[in-house]
């Protein structure tokens, strides 16, 4: 049976009705139209659905919506502030780190979470930080460049 929950998504309080088995990914995409978060495998293997849950990267396809109650959720749609892109988004454009783009939003969210906790990483740490996100187009090369560029102070 559907239950009502309140979720704080991109700093807005959202009221949604969900079935017990439904995931945060389902709520974002199908109930709230936040389709920047992608579904790539639905079993926590690809990283396309990565969002921030209390400032940590998680696979939204593995988070039951009902367990996200009371937590702060940030999706790709919440990164832009006052029409200005987040530095990670800017860096992905500048570095040419986007090809088909299907992994991009999840990748950016993983990078964002990682940089929140480690603002000046080594290349190896960057690679570990995005190791939960698969990309089939870029070989990760320009993605690592982008995260490196976004990690520079200033």
């Amino acid at each position: 049976m559907k239950q009502r929950i309140n979720l704080t998504i991109n700093e807005e309080l959202q009221e949604v009705f969900v079935e017990p088995h439904q995931t945060l990914l389902h709520v974002l995409r199908e109930e709230l139209g936040l389709i920047g978060t992608k579904k790539g495998c639905d079993t926590g293997g690809c990283g396309c659905c990565t969002v921030l849950l209390d400032d940590r990267a998680v696979y939204a396809c593995m988070v039951f919506a009902l367990s996200a109650q009371g937590k702060k959720i940030i999706t790709i749609e919440g990164l832009r502030e006052n029409g200005k892109l987040d530095p990670v988004q800017e860096a992905f454009i500048e570095a040419g780190a986007v090809q088909c783009g299907y992994c991009t939003c999840g990748m950016i969210m993983a990078a964002k979470a990682f940089l929140l906790h480690n603002p000046a990483p080594s290349d190896q740490e960057i690679r570990a930080g995005i190791a939960g996100n698969l990309c089939r187009c870029t070989g990760y090369h320009k993605i690592v460049e982008a995260v490196r560029a976004a990690s520079r102070p200033g």
Partner: peptide, 9 residues
């Protein structure tokens, strides 16, 4: 060993 998303959950 696991990626950050798994470490976090």
């Amino acid at each position: 060993y696991p990626p950050p998303q798994i470490q976090n959950m």
